[in-house]
Nucleic acid binder design. Sequence first.
DNA 1: TATAGTACCTTGTATAGCAAGGTACCTAGG
DNA 2: CCTAGGTACCTTGCTATACAAGGTACTATA
Lengths: 115, 115
Amino acid sequence: MEQPLDPYLQRTLTQMRRGTLELAVLLAIARQQEAYASDIVTELERANQLIVEGTLYPLLARLREEALVSYRWEESASGPPRKYYQLTDRGKHALSALQTSWHETITSLTQLAAK
Amino acid sequence: MEQPLDPYLQRTLTQMRRGTLELAVLLAIARQQEAYASDIVTELERANQLIVEGTLYPLLARLREEALVSYRWEESASGPPRKYYQLTDRGKHALSALQTSWHETITSLTQLAAK
DNA sequence: TATAGTACCTTGTATAGCAAGGTACCTAGG
DNA sequence: CCTAGGTACCTTGCTATACAAGGTACTATA
């Protein structure tokens, strides 16, 4: 039973997603070696990270432009062809750098929260 | 010795800050009971969270509009008067809610990162 | 009466999440 | 056939916010 969220909290959580979605998507791709958009959505849902198409497709396009991921087309028996994404070497390095920053952020906030 | 950052990483880290700065500022105020802008900057620097004036002042104004903080003026012997901020009850609740979301996010990403 | 230090705040720009809407492929039922 | 439903890709418009840069004003000191 979900309560409707305070608009303030809603907005702030959206901002929080900005910092983590890109990392989460890179992790989801890394985890599966190869993934197309629906795989990523499913993988993130499993981890309670919601992402919608209007967010994911532009994000994948950015990752592509930055050469963090590459893709290949694959035909599907049950619909249009799919773009399967995989991490490039550059993507693996970026993922590693982001994880480091992420851990530093956790450390900082943990320290701030300690009385 | 700081290396100049990859512009991509730079941008992404800025996005990461979006999600955490508001939480960090609320924590910094809570920690000190009362704080003015410079106190907050100092407190965050100590935790390795950089924040600049052009970010902090608008953020404090937003917190004020949302009634998460209130302030009182205090004269200073060494310059212009200062605005000392403190959390309101609503602010304490919001802080608590944000911390909960923050921990959930950590859990999600930790789960995604686990092989 | 300058100059330096402190403290407040605003303007303009770029970025990215999201709602909503669009195109096109495939299969199955009538 | 051809229409409906499911799948998959993508775009447009809106909004929020971090940050660089610039601005005002108070106090103390030389």
